Simulated assay, not measured.
Amino acid sequence: MIDGLADAGEVTPEESLGARIREFRLARRISLRALALLAHTSPGFLSQLERGQANASVGTLRKLADGLGITLPDLFTDDDVTRPKVLRREHRPEIHTSNLTSKYLLSQKPLRNLEVYVADFLPGGNSGDAYTHGDVQEMLVVISGSVTLELAGAEYQLNRGDSAEYRTSTLHSVRNTSAEPAEVMWIISPPTLGAP
């Protein structure tokens, strides 16, 4: 760097940060204006930030990260977006729900284009009361056993290999009313801030 200017072809820290913010924003299909509103800043400033032409305070970066559903360190990681990632079964992060249900996050953070969970339901296990999270596409796939899926008050019996697709804004819940364990997978795209 000479006189504060980056060498031709060299990416500045500001450009790198801006590119990551833009990458996450586009992956979540959030408009520049919507993200600026969430971060209490202007779309013009956010546009400059994404192009590496402005600096943001830590407070603004925290608001941007919250609006994107990521952590502040996710904006500064050197992880290569295209690098393959392997997650071993024994290293899955568990989301404690109940003694009858074990839920695991399969998508590795930071979440980019999709969010994937699996859950093991013992007989009587459930995902809790019907809930919503955001308004994006969600697919439930039954890997083994059978479960009852409640969607907007209607119930559907799903067996191994069955799937259902719906918006995350639809009230939904899953329960195992059978005498055998069941395993399901949720696939959500783009990622939402709330987990199933």
Results as ranks from 00 to 15, higher is better:
V118Y: 11
T101Y: 11
A154Q: 11
A164F: 15
S163V: 10
F121K: 00
A119Q: 07
R167P: 15
G128N: 04
A154M: 03
L171Y: 15
E115W: 09
E165D: 14
N159F: 13
G134A: 06
N159Q: 08
G134S: 07
Y117T: 05
S144R: 00
N176V: 07
S146R: 02
S127R: 03
L105V: 06
V141Q: 07
S146M: 09
L100V: 09
E165S: 14
T101H: 12
L149E: 08
Y131V: 02
E150K: 03
L158D: 11
T177P: 08
S98N: 13
P110H: 10
E150S: 07
S98L: 15
D129I: 10
Y104S: 01
Y104A: 00
D135A: 13
S98H: 10
R112T: 13
L171E: 13
S173F: 11
S144V: 00
S173N: 14
A152T: 06
V174D: 02
R167I: 09
V136H: 08
Y166C: 09
P110Q: 06
Y156P: 01
S163E: 13
G161L: 10
E150M: 06
Q137K: 12
G124N: 02
N113P: 06
G134C: 11
E138C: 01
L122V: 00
T101F: 09
R160A: 14
N159E: 12
L151R: 05
S178V: 01
S178W: 03
N126T: 01
S102I: 03
E115A: 14
Y131Q: 05
L140G: 04
N99Y: 15
N159G: 12
L171N: 14
S107W: 09
K109L: 13
S169E: 05
D129L: 11
L171A: 15
Y117E: 02
N176T: 04
T170P: 07
H172T: 09
V142I: 01
E165A: 14
L151W: 03
